[in-house]
Nucleic acid binder design. Structure first.
Lengths: 141, 141
DNA sequence: TAAACATGTTAGGTCTTACTAACATTTTGT
DNA sequence: ACAAAATGTTAGTAAGACCTAACATGTTTA
C-alpha cells in the first residue's frame, strides 16, 4: 500500500501527473490555475512534495515525478476515475457534479470500498439493465 | 440549505446529537472518547459551536442543541445513514468499514449526489435482485 | 538590448485543528 | 466533610493549508 499523504498534497500530485500526461510538463503557474490557489501556495506544496520524495524539483527547475510519486498519482487517479464513472453512469449525476464529488471523495475512501466499488461497476457494465431502468425512474419525476 | 460548517465541527455536532438522543445528555468527556480527541480539543470545539449558534454552552454548563444545530445534525445524520446503508447493503462492506467510510464521505458530498443516492437506494429496495446477485458474485472469488 | 511583463520564491500573516501540561472545578468515596 | 479522582478549561505549541506583498528571475517585445 502506498504511504499516506494529505488530501491537499494528493490534489497536487494528481494535477501534476495529469498535466504532464497531457502536455509533457507542468509549471507552477499551471497548478496555480488548475487548483485555484496562489502561486505561493504552489511553491510551498512543491517544496513539500519534493522533500517527501514524490517529485524532483529545485529552484526554477522543471518538475518531474519520482516512482513514489507515480504510484501515488496512479492511486488517486484510479479512485477518481472509478468514482467519476459511478457517479456519472450509475447515479446519473452530470459531468461537472460527478467530477467535483469525485475530487473530494477520492481522498477519503478505504481500500475495500475501492475494491467493491470496482467490482460493482464491472458487474453493472455486464448487467446494465438495472442502472438504465433506474435512469428512467429519475426522468419521470 | 443549512449554512456551511467544517467537517470537524460536523463531527462534533453529529456526536452531540447522537449522544443526547441516546442518553438525554452529553458531557465533554463523552465526546472526547467518542471522537478520539483530547478533552482540550473538545473544549475548543464546544466554544466554537456555541459562538456559531449551534449549541448552548457555557463554562461547566450542560450542553444543549439549538434549532440551527438540530438542522445541521439532522442533515449530517441523514447523509451518514444513507451512505452507511448503501455501503453495507449494496456495496456489501462490513459494518465497521461502512461506518468509517460513511463518517468521512458524509462531509464532502453535494446535495444532488445525496438526492440521487437516496433515489438509488429506494429503487434498490424495490428491486433488490441486482444487488443480491452482485453479492453472490462477491462470494465466488 | 533593455524595459515591461510573466512567472517563481520568500517572508510574514491568518485560520483551523489538534496536542500536552498546568490549573480549576466538580464528583466520589471513605 | 475532605482528600482523591475525574472532568473541564486555559495556555502555549505545532502542523497544514492558505493568503498578500515584496522581491528574484526569466521571457517577450519594442
Amino acid at each position: 500500500m502506498t504511504k499516506k499523504i494529505t488530501a491537499g498534497l494528493e490534489d497536487y500530485i494528481e494535477a501534476i501527473s495529469n498535466k504532464i500526461n497531457q502536455y509533457g510538463k507542468v509549471r507552477p503557474i499551471d497548478l496555480s490555475k488548475e487548483l485555484n490557489v496562489s502561486r505561493a501556495s504552489v511553491s510551498e506544496a512543491l517544496k513539500r512534495l519534493s522533500e517527501l520524495g514524490y517529485i524532483n524539483y529545485g529552484r526554477y527547475g522543471i518538475i518531474s515525478i519520482t516512482d513514489l510519486g507515480k504510484k501515488a498519482a496512479e492511486s488517486v487517479i484510479e479512485r477518481h476515475t472509478l468514482l467519476h464513472y459511478f457517479l456519472q453512469n450509475i447515479l446519473w449525476l452530470d459531468e461537472n457534479e460527478a467530477s467535483d464529488n469525485a475530487c473530494k471523495i477520492e481522498h477519503v475512501i478505504s481500500y475495500n470500498l475501492l475494491k467493491n466499488l470496482k467490482k460493482f461497476v464491472e458487474y453493472n457494465k455486464k448487467n446494465p439493465e438495472f442502472s438504465l431502468k433506474f435512469k428512467d425512474t429519475l426522468k419521470n419525476q
